[in-house]
Amino acid sequence: MKTPRLSPQTLRVLEQFAERPTAWRYGYELSSETGLKSGTLYPILMRLAKYSLLETKWVMTEDGVPPRHTYRLTANGMELARAKQTTSRSGVRVRRTAFSGSKA
């Protein structure tokens, strides 16, 4: 798969999803974990969903309380998150080598 260009904030969201790939996550929970404000988080979620990298569903949590929207990465989304994680780690390793002064 061709690797898309991702913003650091999107990478952070993907990392959070990748930590518990099968779990359905709430928006506020993701916001707390990534430190992203709602104005940044939701456009990312909307774009991920638009490109079928994220699946969404409404769930009832308790009686009398409106349902909550929950999110989980699709298979494509998971593949992208893993690919990005790999690229990110290798990038970090290369940079460390370069700046540490040690031989490659």
């Binding site: 709602s38 939701y42 979620l45 909307m46 969404t56 409106p66 349902p67 909550r68 929207h69």
Partner: peptide, 10 residues
Amino acid sequence: LDWGLAMLAE
């Protein structure tokens, strides 16, 4: 609209 309602629910 769905996204707006999701934000409101949160």
